[in-house]
Design a protein around this nucleic acid. Structure first.
Lengths: 258, 258
DNA sequence: TAGTGGTCTAGACCACTTA
DNA sequence: AAGTGGTCTAGACCACTAG
């Protein structure tokens, strides 16, 4: 007969399950995160050394290293060469807000449409010319779009593009009719990098009219500049997002059941 | 005599410099990022297989894997088992805004001060009680702070705390006089995790008065809830940030000289 | 000097995709 | 079946910190 199995192991540490589909490094990340979340490991505490963790989890050094690196990237611990690895206390600065939220919430399931309001050739005003590193008064493309969510105006997009018939950027831009297309792969493959800024603004008359809210309502302004492979700006514009629809979220600290 | 060195090698690929202090994996990340940034590798292109990259950079499989993983995390490439690794096109959804910016810009060098406006025991109103998972009308701590930057009001912080004399949280909170203390290690080591939301708001009369801007001005509202190790909310409040001071930035795509 | 984290190797095995 | 990415091993050497 087999020895009876203890139902409640006394303080036995969790270790990795080699039969699981979850990789060993991910299990170690999860287990250590849980110990931080439940207070077994408190902020300021030193984690066991890599050698000790290796012995506990029965894995090779590289596997432990990988797990620790992930915890460092997540801001849960900090590692100092020669000293040790320590649990960090909660830090608001670790919070990150991702625009990915926007895509996920709006694209999946909900009815979202992009309406092209205007597309015309214009003479670039001083500000737009400056942002596009072009001479003031030179020709550009001006595009206005409205993103509707369940028939409600949600985002108002205005964009200036460098006018260059030799580039397919404009044609590609004009064919965008979905939010996915609007947010990713702008101009297909001709863009290399982009700068984005986000600030809170008061809506002017035109913006308020388009978004169907009172003048002076607050909104998010997401300004963007995209550059081509020669590092020249080719697109500058702003997404004006209704504040009542557009809320960003972030989490800090250790998560359980992630 | 040595053979003359070619000043301009014909299309020779860069490889890793083993004498550099920069780790091999980081050099590989940098080199591949540059090739994406300069268009040598275009969006949609397949990267050389790991075996090929191994041969080019004269490193072991793990080192290549680590470099690729970093490129994936940065959103520059996507890897598919059995198919290959491909250069991604620009995607706004990859943008991340970090609150870390706030600390870096404000703490270093610039004169920043935290002024305690109020700290009192109150009866929690319905909303605060709900957020703190406490009965409406139960006792709580109410704290108001003003963050000044070069003598200009920049952030207005209001916070409700669970009233619990047995916990040192309140005392720790009241002693916060620096922005660093305000943003990290709130309540020392008693907090496990936090939820944050950010939205654009119009300032009410009180907020406008404190921040010395017109009523109805737009502002960022950074709302936070912090939980203890028993997963009970202990702190709920908002940072109201003047829009003209608080601008967040993000970058997407391949960076050179990072 | 002993202990810590940081990097790297040269293989191995597996899962997945495509042909 | 061949090629791809994904994981893991069992060592090694190095840089840094502390007593």
């Amino acid at each position: 007969m087999r020895a009876p199995v203890l139902k409640t192991p006394r303080r036995e540490s969790k270790t990795v399950d080699r039969t699981s589909y979850e990789p060993a490094y991910a299990q170690i990340v999860r287990i250590l995160s849980e110990e931080i979340a439940t207070g077994i490991l408190h902020p300021g505490d030193q984690l066991p050394s890599e050698a000790q963790l290796r012995a506990r989890f029965f894995v090779s050094p590289m596997t432990i290293r990988r797990a620790i690196n992930i915890l460092v990237e997540r801001g849960l611990v900090s590692a100092a060469q020669g000293k040790g690895t320590f649990v960090r206390s909660l830090d608001i600065g670790e919070a990150v807000f991702r625009l990915q939220e926007l895509k996920e919430h709006w694209i999946n399931g909900d009815e979202t449409a992009v309406r092209l309001l205007e597309a015309s050739i214009v003479s670039l005003d001083e500000r737009a010319a400056d942002r596009l590193a072009a001479p003031a008064g030179s020709r550009g493309i001006y595009i206005r779009r409205l993103v509707l969510r369940e028939s409600t105006p949600a985002m108002y997009h205005r964009e200036y593009l460098i006018y260059d018939p030799s580039r397919p950027l404009v044609e590609a831009q004009l064919q965008i009719t979905s939010l996915t297309g609007l947010l990713q792969g702008q101009g297909g493959e001709g863009l290399r990098r982009g700068n984005l800024t986000m600030e809170a603004v008061n809506l002017d008359e035109e913006e308020a009219l388009v978004l169907q809210v009172p003048v002076n309502s607050s909104a998010f302004s997401l300004e963007h500049t995209f550059y081509d492979f020669d590092d020249r700006p080719v697109s500058w514009g702003k997404f004006i997002c209704r504040a009542d629809i557009f809320v960003m979220t972030a989490r800090i600290g250790a998560e359980v059941n992630l």
